[in-house]
Design a binder for these strands. Sequence first.
DNA 1: GGCTCATGGAGAAACGGTTCTTCTCGGCCG
DNA 2: CGGCCGAGAAGAACCGTTTCTCCATGAGCC
Lengths: 390, 390
Amino acid sequence: MTAAANQSGRRPTASRRLERAGIRDVAAAAGVSITTVSDALNGKGRLPDETRSRVREVAERLGYRPSAAARTLRTGRSGLIGLTVTTYGEEPFTFTEFAYFAEMARAATSAALSRGYALVVLPASSRHDVWSNIALDGTVVIDPPDQDPLVSELYRSGVPVVSDGKPGNCPVTAWVDNDHEAAVLGILDHLSEAGARRIGLLTGTSTDTYTRLSTDAYLGWCQRVGQEPVYETYPAHDPAAGAVAADRLLARPDRPDAVYGLFDPNGTDLLAAARRYGLRVPDDLLLVCCSESDVYATTEPPITTLSLKPRRIGTTVVNLLIDAIEGVDSGTGVTVPDAPTGRLFPPRFRTAGTGPPPGTLMPTELIVRASSQPRSPRTTISPPRSPGEV
Amino acid sequence: MTAAANQSGRRPTASRRLERAGIRDVAAAAGVSITTVSDALNGKGRLPDETRSRVREVAERLGYRPSAAARTLRTGRSGLIGLTVTTYGEEPFTFTEFAYFAEMARAATSAALSRGYALVVLPASSRHDVWSNIALDGTVVIDPPDQDPLVSELYRSGVPVVSDGKPGNCPVTAWVDNDHEAAVLGILDHLSEAGARRIGLLTGTSTDTYTRLSTDAYLGWCQRVGQEPVYETYPAHDPAAGAVAADRLLARPDRPDAVYGLFDPNGTDLLAAARRYGLRVPDDLLLVCCSESDVYATTEPPITTLSLKPRRIGTTVVNLLIDAIEGVDSGTGVTVPDAPTGRLFPPRFRTAGTGPPPGTLMPTELIVRASSQPRSPRTTISPPRSPGEV
DNA sequence: GGCTCATGGAGAAACGGTTCTTCTCGGCCG
DNA sequence: CGGCCGAGAAGAACCGTTTCTCCATGAGCC
């Protein structure tokens, strides 16, 4: 009986070491055809429940696990999604995006998993060998640089690509980003209301969308309100450079009385620099930085942070991607021609065609703490925007 | 010509939408057989260089990318490694292991990539459907609980498993861990030398190896030096509980004059608690915690931390796993019968047989900062153990 | 000149599923 | 009583590689 199952019409002389049971083994053991087994296990075909459950039971007993490779080959679906991170230097992901990336990746993993997909982490720098050795149903790209050749090739070869961060010049299926302009303007207003007269910015030298949009928003605001811009730039991937830049900013003759730092470690760096110059926060200097880290809740004083809500982003990106993967296959089918592009929080998903890819803007959240509030009025601490929500 | 290539002996009537070029197309275009194409591209077989390069060129021109699924099916190798994380609740990985995990995962990704593998992140909680839908060549497991059914099944079905953290009771191919006992003893000695008379511990309630070994080391030390243990426990996955436990520890009548916290956020929690009780650090309370976060370099005062060197761990784990994957296939071949088990920093890899799996102990690094040094002598800051090394 | 041998390359069998098509068999209806 | 129909299940093609086996050819050797 088991012997019969073992042979199952394959190589008669095979020594058969510890090969796992295949679908044929199950079929033989259950006394049915492999078609029936496949149908029974996948809930397809027309089978009476009795057969179905019997086959399932036999499969279970034999410890049958279908071969992912075979299934992928036949169906063209691997259930795998790439998560691409841009890299500086050799490390797969960057220091500066650490907390953001970790949270985003976590949410993305969750979201993917709950829809039956798994995530493969792939630095954008890896060469084709690695990429093309993996069957990917689609890819999430974090902050693709302009003209990313990798993204272009993926897109061209028909793999759906959704980017976290509005893509500069590469074709993607869809993208998700924060409303960085609104976020920066919100912060500048917040600092103004707190009494700031001259707001400085600590920003990066790179050309990614986040840095560019944020800096532009700052410059535009300065122009509108008639303040001379006061900012320092540094390569965001280098934490040491950040500390130096923070110091530089506070050492300027036109020292700002409030600073917004675009990158995670800026808060502690600015705080340390302020200490060195004998500046009290928030009395002499108001501070806000963009960070996902909760250490800023316990610094002395606690620092107001802007959260980009990476969990939401990760979830949204993955869901858009899976929609694209499972949606209308390609070309013709426009699912919903909804709003144009860049609408807030919108789109029912839309499968290609021509024209710019559909983008989704997600709100940010300003977590107001002591560092950005004048000490005297002693108001209670509360987040001003987007309350509720995880 | 392209027409000929397009047909290539497949369905004659196929409408052939935008199918990617297959190996047959390349073969047809190059005027050779698919065997030759395969050999040429993979550097196998006996072919004159001329043929080889011609085929390569044609493949390049056609944008040929071999199907990962087909290759995997045929060769049995996917180039994919699972990275399993234990989960508390719904999130794929835990808060408390955040920095550790992020760093470890990053190093693991790098290490895997440099050997041509990619990492798939998989929460241990996901059900079989997900696991068995992915062709994995092997799996890294982070801190498997005793009797982890997942690990057992993987191991049983022949997939190499290497764990980060000495496995309790599940069979693994190999494991890597820090020398937690030595680390704790080193810290206790360090605190004693700094003048501590009564050292407290902030530890977890869970039964993972790290918590257990560390706590045992502490208790053993107490017994040896004749100090009454002073410790508080809390569920490590709950950050809020950590703050409460820190408070509890400092509120005790037998308040310790030095504390070691096993988990990352303990440092800030203890600092905050100390502030509440008016305790100065390090004057009234010496502080050390285990953390990979560099925020402790800039807290007030900076806090001494124990680093588990997750990068090293991640790299080692992955390399051991890939050795196992690529090494002698199974059963008979003992590569090197080296030292027994649990030797420090050792083993040439050893493929199974019976007996306990080979384990590697990695050193930790104590980063001494102001919080654990009496203020007066004002010594310079320097790491006492394992200098150098990334 | 017949043999072996090395070289270059073609043929075809896997790999292990999914799925389209076909077959059989009763029951039912006209 | 014959044909139709639908349920249940089997057959076989196919997915795109890798790789084992084998064939043709010409050179070298006795």
